[in-house]
Design a binder for these strands. Structure first.
Lengths: 214, 214
DNA sequence: TTTTTACTCAGACCACAGACGGAGAGCTTG
DNA sequence: CAAGCTCTCCGTCTGTGGTCTGAGTAAAAA
């Protein structure tokens, strides 16, 4: 049986080198390449077409989710294993929707990761307990995130609220009347099912909507 | 010259193994132990009294800052190098105050880390560019963080605001009158130099005051 | 073409938020 | 002891926030 061709994408040098060094001790795993950013990872993947890709989320240059999406377009058969530091509800499903095959945490042991790679090569996906729990929740409540119901304009207004702007300041910033702002705010509050702008701001922060500005 | 005795503390198995595997290739570095949590790290450090300790912040069981503090009590001569994933303003200075010797990011190359270890052993500390920048700011503006001016009670109220509670809800939760809550809120707003509770909530989230509840 | 959705704005209304001034009780510090 | 800080509470007043109802325009979907 041929060794599994693996690509490792992680912007943390030591982590990447470390994973690779470990995986090199595995006979049936072959490290064919490495990349230190999502963009680079997508390019390298296209060139090498590896069997399995170990992908970090949270990278500085091009997030792992974008990279996953790109790679899946080029190589629909690639098995991408997300390997990230902390469990983040907001990241899991975007990653899985982008085409990730497994979702592992770096708290996993080295053995678990190598078996995850081998299983991925066979087409078996590994589900972390925490991720499994979240998936159960998602299945139970297949709702969209409330803020996905917001229109573009409403999202703009919500970002402003998340930055602590008053209705007046928002109206000046977006060049619209205060009345209009109030309308938007009211709609936002009812769509997010919160009672006031402060809760809306909290919502925006908790759900990662402030990433651009924060 | 004797090899430098190094202890590696990181709750991510692959990361820890990876760092170790790499450092083993260095002749003048000797890995004497490893630990997968802050608490364990403190114990092991006491037993082994290593020269240099590579310490991850953000661990699930006992944060690296606490561990650093403990270790420095036991081994005032230990050089603790913080090695963490992401730069976090709120974590750097507590870590340095706790006695950390250097502050490195995992984006550093493996070479940088091994040289940091060697320099630490000699008594030279390595400062990441980002950390250096933050230190300059701290020196230029040796102000306390505004929220450090808050009293305990005010901080409690601020957390409530950060959770989107109204004055009424806060008064019920803390078993005090609404008037009292209003007084606290007013004081908080002026101390944080913000105009309304929404901005206060934003402040709380941006400055990591919601970590317990978030 | 008709219908729907998004964006805009208006007036009226009420409740809460927040500012300001004042005050008493308890606790620590000089 | 006196001074200072914290936490508590009161009354008053103004402005903003938010709801509700209603409505016009433009673009996209049916």
């Amino acid at each position: 049986m041929e060794p599994i061709r693996v690509l490792v994408v992680d912007d943390h040098d030591v982590v990447r080198k470390g994973i690779i060094t470990y995986l090199l001790t595995e006979d049936d795993i072959d490290i064919v390449g490495e990349a230190s950013s999502g963009n680079e990872g997508a390019k390298v993947a296209k060139d090498l077409s590896p069997d399995v890709i170990l992908m970090d989320l949270m990278m500085e240059n091009g997030t792992g989710i974008d990279a996953t999406e790109k790679i899946m377009k080029d190589l629909p058969n690639a098995k991408i294993i997300i390997l990230t530091s902390y469990y983040d509800d907001e990241k899991v499903f975007p990653a899985l929707e982008a085409g990730a095959f497994s979702y592992m945490l770096k708290t996993s042991s080295a053995e678990e990761i190598s078996t995850a790679i081998k299983k991925a090569a066979k087409g078996e996906n590994v589900i972390e307990p925490k991720v499994a729990g979240a998936m159960m929740n998602r299945i139970r409540t297949p709702d969209r995130m409330p803020h996905e119901l917001l229109t573009e304009r409403e999202l703009e207004v919500l970002i402003c609220i998340g930055n602590g702007l008053t209705n007046n300041e928002i109206s000046e910033k977006l060049f619209i009347g205060i009345k209009t702002v109030k309308t938007h705010v009211s709609n936002i509050l009812s769509k997010l099912d919160v009672q006031d702008r402060t809760q809306a701001a909290v919502y925006a922060h908790r759900n990662g909507l402030m990433k651009e500005t924060n």
